[in-house]
């Protein structure tokens, strides 16, 4: 219980303080990811320079920006693969910088991550790749795991690839399998790093449709890093444009289209 003096010092109304506690507990309805004043540098190169961003539960946020603006770094910071120089990242109300290994593992179980190159484990078959997190984080029997893997592969249209090795399937198929693996633990947050990069337009369209279908079915918060404006327009509720280490503009695709900022205009021109 907060003392009245503390309340005054913090200048926070009691109702707001209660709402904030609800978010920290990770209740549904609160934002899935809250980023405040995030800084990240590699040597002398400043990549993120005080980024503020909120991803609401159930919404899809597309991150756009030129190459090297730190979009992928931001995803890795959210899942704790990299440490920020300063700033705060709250995932379902939990500050990830202060978590110990077990708490971090618990958070990671709630996040699905599709890597840019799918990052399938090349010594394991497609089935073993998808079963990898299931085997370690669930009490499922072997047959239950197999059923779940088949169900996930059916979701992404890859039932026939069960026994194949990652090296034997195409890039688009690898992305689908990567997506199935990301969804294995039924995450509440999905991070997608360039899901359509390097794919032909038809396969890109198929992946977009797949992401839309999965979002409808699973009601997850998603952060999609992409260079593909058409893809962002199709799958995102909201778009954030990163420029010079910060979020230059955020809003719907229409909001961005109406912007009179020179950089935004230049960026959006690619769509026309």
């Amino acid at each position: 219980m907060m003392l009245p003096e503390q309340q005054v010092l913090l200048d926070v109304p009691e109702s707001s303080a209660t709402a904030s506690t609800e978010n920290v507990s990770g209740d549904s309805g609160g934002p899935a990811v809250v980023i405040r004043g995030l800084h990240k540098s590699f040597g002398k190169q400043i990549v993120l320079n005080g980024v503020n961003l909120t991803v609401k539960s159930g919404e899809t946020l597309a991150m756009l920006g030129r190459s090297g603006t730190g979009k992928s770094v931001l995803l890795k910071l959210i899942i704790g693969l990299q440490k920020p120089d300063s700033g705060s990242i709250l995932v379902q109300g939990q500050e990830i910088a202060s978590l110990d290994l077990q708490e971090m593992t618990d958070i990671r179980k709630k996040i699905g991550f599709l890597f840019q190159g799918a990052a399938l484990y090349d010594s394991l078959s497609v089935e073993q790749n998808i079963a990898f997190p299931l085997k370690r984080h669930t009490e499922m029997t072997k047959s239950e795991r197999r059923d779940r893997v088949k169900e996930l592969l059916a979701n992404v249209g890859m039932e026939s690839a069960l026994k194949k090795m990652p090296g034997d399937i195409s890039g688009g198929m690898q992305k689908r399998v990567g997506l199935a693996r990301a969804l294995a633990l039924k995450p509440s947050i999905l991070l997608l790093d360039e899901p359509t990069a390097g794919l032909d337009p038809i396969t890109s369209g198929e992946i977009d449709e797949l992401i839309l279908k999965l979002q409808e079915e699973h009601d997850m918060a998603s952060v999609v890093v992409t260079h593909d404006l058409l893809s962002a327009k199709t799958i995102a509720d909201r778009i954030a444009l990163l420029h010079e280490g910060n979020v230059l503009i955020e809003g719907t695709f229409q909001d961005l289209s109406k912007s009179d900022d020179k950089f935004v205009l230049e960026f959006m021109k690619r769509d026309s």
């Binding site: 890795k76 899942i79 693969l81 971090m104 593992t105 618990d106 990671r108 179980k109 996040i111 991550f113 890597f115 840019q116 190159g117 990052a119 399938l120 484990y121 090349d122 990898f132 997190p133 370690r136 984080h137 693996r181």
Partner: peptide, 11 residues
């Protein structure tokens, strides 16, 4: 190829 990151991201 980010496979080690993927292992870590899987918890």
């Amino acid at each position: 190829t980010e496979q080690i990151d993927a292992i870590e991201a899987s918890g």
